[in-house]
Design a protein around this nucleic acid. Structure first.
Lengths: 355, 355
DNA sequence: ACAAATATTGCATTCGAATGCAATTACAAT
DNA sequence: ATTGTAATTGCATTCGAATGCAATATTTGT
């Protein structure tokens, strides 16, 4: 039952066939069609790259589009095409790099995709978040947070492409982009041992963080291999204050003796640790104690700290995550894929390593 | 022409009236209706709070929903209700506080709104971004970035509620949430002058930043009022390196003389400035030179810096922005509104002010 | 038990753009 | 001019959920 001659009840009765531009109400493709004296399909085709439209038609439609200020309704388009052109990005509150978000946003929008941001506050919220995501009919999900198995299942069954950024699940066949945490930590330990450090303290991240566990065991395993079993592990929560607190715990746990080197699971705790070593213990870094971090956060390079750390190629990683998602959106049949990057040792001055 | 008996061509011909749960394809409200032996409207109503549904009906539908794994399609809903339940957030790349994004995301999602994130790379991109936003049919826009007048116009004409966060346009009637930059800067200057500082250097932000201009003129005006016209202004770009660079420019501009106090337009530059004072000039902060910042960034409280700064109530500000947007989504007639907060002096030790 | 009032339910339509198919037009070749 | 072929255009339908209205079913009052 077409509706070419009368779209809907606007404020004015439509007496004329081609009305003057109406100032109110959102302009639809029918409005444009009517104004330009063509069919709605023609208008639609003018917005589809590679569609069959004559030059004359395109000009005519575009003129009307211009004059009426028409913009295609992405929601209506999404309904019929089954593509929302949106990608959900999930982050955990703790410890995310601001530049990652900016990179993701830029990279996605460069590919014509919009970014829906979700921030988990605690694991319980993941249920609700995944529910929201599912209802939004996003084309894909980039998760820079841990998701419960059940939620991963849900997304997989709904055939929504999913990629984990900076964490991977060994026993679930899911795409991920990560950095080899163990290799990085081994590099750090090697550098410290080569430089002659002999006693070590380790400040791990939260116990439920997979990345922290990988980093920590990477360090302890390598230390064990090299015959340095004199190492104590304490836990922080990735933030500045916990770096200092953990250092004090560490020293207490070692019978009030400061280790020669402290290995921190991330840069921010390393910074907190350095400040505590200086202020609370009056020590010099690196003369009295060495401190190393992990991440390559921008603050790591501030000259008050100048950390020895592992620089993760976050730019390359975000690009990889985006391309994995995009590939799977365009080609739903693709199997999961894991891309693992290697971090590089950043030779700062918070430990006296050999340059 | 209803379609109760046969929704669409699935893989199998629909012989039975109530089919077993089909494993493939997204489940629609029609599928649920058919499976439960009720009408599609009934299913729809079960998801609308306060709709007229009997207990028996609700149970029956929910059972089917559960068994089929149905989730309402937000896109289809958005088309008919004319509400996408999405709010666009625009940030500029430079200088945004990570926690602001997290707060926005949480606050919006607590109100059932999803957050579409857009990151501007340069002002030219604003055109494109606003275009995208418009097409997405978001219910509102929170801008933590400068937008060209023309784009503001576009959004206003499209009747999309818009609120600026942490910046305001004096001569355009637009909602905004901001912090009184001038008052904050005056507070800082007063504190410095009261403490006896007599010569000043000012490190401003980028020339096109409105906030930077407000902060800078706030400082210079107050200094002038108090009779200290001995102040030089140099420009940075809000990042760490530019703090150090600007300090050197400042000293050069004053005939190689270090001022007694340096007033920086944000915390990160203040930190860069402190590091440069210590490393490049071998000076002590605050004994040889005082440095003050602005923002209350988390790093400002790190003990290596412990800045005297103005703490902006960002949490309250984001909440305010969200509530302004929500009010205007629910009640499109509301006039624009400006909420101005006041920052508080954070009495760190980067300047010897009176506690 | 019966009429009136109220609560549920279903029908049919709507939102705005995309698209398969058929109809029409433009263009080329004879 | 005529027929054939290719390029355009329009028609009618579709996506999935919400909703006004009418048709039932239930409850209430008497």
């Amino acid at each position: 039952m077409g509706r070419t001659s009368s779209n809907k009840a606007r404020t004015k009765p439509d007496v004329a066939i081609a009305a003057v531009p109406e100032p109110n109400g959102p302009v639809t493709s029918y409005d444009v069609a009517r104004y330009a004296g063509v069919s709605q399909s023609a208008v639609s085709r003018c917005f589809k790259p590679g569609a069959s439209v004559s030059k004359k038609m395109r000009e005519r439609v575009m003129k009307a589009v211009e004059e009426l200020g028409y913009r295609p309704n992405a929601i209506a388009r999404g309904l019929i095409t089954q593509r929302s052109n949106m990608v959900a990005v999930i982050i955990a509150n703790l410890r995310f790099y601001p530049e990652v978000l900016v990179n993701l946003s830029r990279g996605l929008s460069r590919r014509g995709l919009n970014m829906l941001l979700f921030s988990l506050d605690d694991e319980g919220a993941a249920n609700n978040t995944v529910e929201q995501i599912w209802q939004s009919r996003v084309d894909g999900v980039i998760a820079a947070a841990n998701l419960p198995r059940e939620q991963i299942e849900t997304l997989t069954r709904a055939k929504i492409p999913l990629v984990f950024l900076n964490r991977n699940y060994r026993d679930v066949p899911i795409s991920s982009v990560s950095c080899d945490q163990v290799a990085g930590e081994r590099t750090l330990v090697n550098a410290l041992v080569n430089a002659g450090y002999k006693s070590f303290g380790i400040i791990a991240g939260p116990q439920n963080s997979i990345v922290s566990r990988q980093r920590t065991t990477g360090a302890t395993d390598r230390l064990d291999e090299l015959g340095f079993s004199d190492h104590v592990v304490v836990f922080g929560n990735y933030d500045y204050d916990s770096g200092g607190t953990a250092l004090r715990e560490l020293v207490a746990a070692r019978g009030n003796k400061m280790p020669e080197a402290v290995i921190c699971a991330n840069d921010v705790m390393a910074i907190g640790c350095i400040d505590a070593a200086r202020d609370h213990y009056g020590l010099d870094v690196p003369d009295d104690v060495a401190v190393v971090g992990y991440d390559g956060a921008s603050q790591a390079y501030w000259s008050s700290y100048d950390l020895v750390t592992i620089q993760q190629p976050m730019q390359a990683m975000t690009e990889a995550a985006i391309s994995i998602i995009q590939d799977r959106i365009e080609n739903p049949g693709l199997p999961p894929e894991r891309r693992v990057f290697l971090g590089s040792l950043s030779r700062g001055s918070s430990a006296k390593i050999i340059k």
